[in-house]
Design a protein around this nucleic acid. Sequence first.
DNA 1: GGTGCATAATTGACGTATCAGCTACCCGGA
DNA 2: TCCGGGTAGCTGATACGTCAATTATGCACC
Lengths: 157, 157
Amino acid sequence: MSQRRGRTALTRTELDSWRVFVETTDDLRATLAGRLQSESGISAGDYRVLLELSEAPGRRLRSSHLADAVGWERSRLSHHLGRMEKRGLIRREAAAGDNRGAEAVLTDEGRDALRRSSVPHFHAIRELFLDALTPDQLAAARDVAETLRDHLAALER
Amino acid sequence: MSQRRGRTALTRTELDSWRVFVETTDDLRATLAGRLQSESGISAGDYRVLLELSEAPGRRLRSSHLADAVGWERSRLSHHLGRMEKRGLIRREAAAGDNRGAEAVLTDEGRDALRRSSVPHFHAIRELFLDALTPDQLAAARDVAETLRDHLAALER
DNA sequence: GGTGCATAATTGACGTATCAGCTACCCGGA
DNA sequence: TCCGGGTAGCTGATACGTCAATTATGCACC
């Protein structure tokens, strides 16, 4: 037994699998973000925020709820909303009933930006990701992702 | 047939698969990077550069070769090397034979930083990624990643 | 009705990523 | 020799992400 699986040392296969997985998924993420930026002029973060707001009742959300919805820390969201507000994609209003709070509201301009970007974005997802995989591979990718997601969530608790 | 697969519209399953895949792989990447930073005081980019240099003959590489090896644009590498040089992890020397060129050289301090970070990093890879998956899932993850990598490479040409 | 702790959100500092533009140098040919 | 296009690398501007610290408000309790 020359390759007993230890607690620390990684086998060649494990290391190779890890590397191709992390490098490729990172490349995919960066390529998608670049497409969104060059084709529609918004970042992946902008898209995420615009999408959540567009689906919210009244097209507005408390900052905290928005942060939970997109899975970001508040600080990150606050910086991001600041940049989006400067570009007119959203505006901020004081929250009714809790003077500590703030609500992010989707502007018409933000709604238009989301509409313009959606078709190109879906097209890129199909071209870069869905078209590459067979139905079996897509199902396997989903299974792996769901397993990893649950594993990571369990560790963070 | 209510769910004929079009060129643009995504089915619910396709969209869900995409979302869990991209969100989870991004979470994994960020979690790993955070571990490396907090446990060893270096970024994922630092680790990548240190690893390539440590494996190079003479522990030195031309900037262009290093950029190719890690898959970065030259500008990104240049900024990164500047920060690493300021911290003493590498130094830069003029390339012999081509006065345009620069070589990045691993310092002793850089070598030590890589050594200190390797075991915790491997441990994190095992804990966050390898431990989550069955052997079949790991093989499937690798297959998906290799397929995607080849697909993306073909598109970029 | 004040004290003290928790919560909501923002801010500043710093490292990281991308883009466009710049300098310096190489080399082949008029 | 010098002209010109290509190569190597750096820089500045701007956006993004994380951390620690800060401000302002809510609220329970005495």
